Simulated scan of single mutants.
Amino acid sequence: MKFWGTLILVLALLLSTGASAFVNSLENTISVGESAYELSYTVENTSNIRQPLTVDYDLPTYFEIIKQPNYVNANSTQEIVVKILPQQGFEGTTYTGMISINLGGNRAEKRVSISYLRENNCVVEREVSLIENKVRITLENNSYKDKTIKLSEVRNLPNDWAITSTSFVLNGFEKNTYELELQKGSSFDGTLEFVFECQGNLFTNKVEVEHEGNDFTGFAIIGSALESVDSELIIDIFLVIIAAILLIAFIARLVRILNSGGKQTKIEVDQ
Rank of each mutant, 00 (worst) to 15 (best):
V195W: 01
G105L: 09
N214A: 10
E197G: 05
T265P: 07
E119S: 05
W4D: 09
N171G: 15
S187Q: 15
G33L: 08
N159C: 12
A244M: 11
E179S: 12
N201A: 14
N171H: 07
T54F: 07
T61I: 00
K83I: 13
K150Q: 13
S260L: 10
F3Q: 15
V195C: 00
V128Y: 01
I163H: 06
R155W: 12
T6A: 09
Q87W: 14
D56K: 05
F238I: 06
N24Y: 10
A19P: 13
F238P: 11
M1W: 07
E140W: 07
L226N: 09
I99F: 02
F238R: 07
I267C: 05
L9F: 04
K263E: 14
E27H: 09
E119W: 02
L182M: 03
Q78C: 11
T138W: 03
A249I: 08
G92Y: 00
F63A: 02
V195F: 02
E34I: 01
N73Q: 12
R136L: 08
P60I: 00
L182T: 03
V209I: 06
V72Q: 01
I241Y: 14
G223K: 15
G97F: 01
Y178E: 01
L7D: 02
T46S: 10
I237A: 15
L13C: 09
C122Y: 00
T96Y: 08
N201R: 14
T6F: 15
S16V: 08
I80G: 03
I84H: 01
I137N: 02
I114V: 07
V195N: 02
N214D: 13
N102W: 09
T217H: 10
I30K: 08
A162F: 06
Y95S: 05
L182C: 05
F168Y: 04
C122G: 03
D215Y: 11
N142I: 03
R126E: 06
P52R: 01
E109S: 12
L157N: 08
S35T: 14
V195R: 02
R256D: 08
V209Y: 10
Q68K: 09
E79T: 06
A162R: 10
G190I: 13
E44T: 09
I131Q: 14
S113W: 06
S20I: 06
D58A: 02
K147C: 02
L117C: 01
N28F: 15
I66T: 03
V55R: 01
C198T: 00
E227W: 11
D189Y: 14
I221D: 11
D189G: 13
E174V: 00
L258R: 05
L151F: 05
G200R: 00
D270Y: 15
Y37Q: 14
E119K: 04
S40L: 03
K263D: 05
T166C: 01
D270H: 13
G185Q: 07
A243I: 15
L233Q: 10
P60F: 00
V82R: 02
L85W: 06
D230T: 12
K134L: 15
N120H: 14
G185C: 06
L14E: 04
F3P: 09
Y95H: 06
I80E: 12
V55N: 01
N142K: 12
T217R: 11
I131P: 08
V209S: 03
G185S: 08
Y178T: 03
E227F: 11
T6V: 14
A244C: 14
V169R: 13
K83R: 08
I242Q: 13
L170K: 03
